[in-house]
Nucleic acid binder design. Structure first.
Lengths: 133, 133
DNA sequence: CCATTGATCAACTTGTTGGTTGACTAAGAG
DNA sequence: CTCTTAGTCAACCAACAAGTTGATCAATGG
């Protein structure tokens, strides 16, 4: 089960875990501090068992951790995985932004007449020849 | 286009779209510039139809757009939705960080003997009203 | 006109997710 | 010991997601 989850696998679980409004609500609540299953279940119209399953999903995704406190199992936010997600997204967001800028510069130097209406790169794309990575 | 998907719905689709290594690979490829379905399908061992479906998912999530170029339908990255995702994540990441800091400060002022074993917030949690004994 | 290329549509199979109910374990409290 | 609180486990079901094959559409080229 938890032997060696690849980086892809970890991202899969984390993104999937956030692709549900209940689980995002749980994350939002936990950002204010730890909470028990019952407390987390209260805002939603589903059974406690369903919430427990959601928490399991979040835990397997590395987004929360559970501790012990008598009968209670307080759930805590684990921000490290959230950081990993923003890191992944921002990586490609920034690459794209840079590509866009350099393409923009290229168009500015070659065409000279008009700067092309925002729909850049549809056919004349300098990055297209790179393949078979 | 669809008729007014709620913010929750949009986040659902976007996070779900990224919860798949094929689709993340497509995003990674598109960060280098637009590509056709065939180009995007090449690195993967699945049929072109499957890739087409993945692109539909990404498009409905607002992460990519498609244009026309003769028979080709070049796919472009749409970075706005990526920004929305990092915005959502960072919101709660920062709230949590701030909570953690203020709790840390609280512990530093009240307890003078032992600084607690790193698992802060488990027992002394300002957000929980339940107290025992 | 017909053939080719690029991509989508439609139907179907398979596996997984989100939810339920009911039984169960664990820890205190009377 | 019994009762209550907090939570999980197990079995089941409806809905959906990912992939396949086969047919179809759209644009171009001979």
């Amino acid at each position: 089960m938890l032997l060696d989850p690849s980086a892809d696998d970890r991202l899969d679980r984390a993104f999937m875990a956030l692709a549900d409004p209940v689980r995002r609500g749980i994350i939002a609540r936990l950002s204010r501090g730890p909470a028990t299953v019952n407390e987390l279940a209260e805002p939603f119209q589903i059974t406690k068992q369903a919430v427990s399953k959601h928490i399991q999903v979040l835990e397997q995704a590395g987004l929360v951790t559970r501790t012990r406190d008598a009968q209670r199992r307080p759930v805590h936010l684990a921000p490290a995985q959230l950081e990993a997600l923003t890191a992944w997204i921002d990586r490609f967001r920034l690459i794209h932004e840079q590509q866009f800028r350099s393409l923009d510069a290229l168009l500015a130097t070659t065409s000279g007449t008009d700067a092309a209406p925002a729909e850049a790169g549809a056919t004349a794309d300098p990055a297209r020849k790179a393949e078979r990575s």
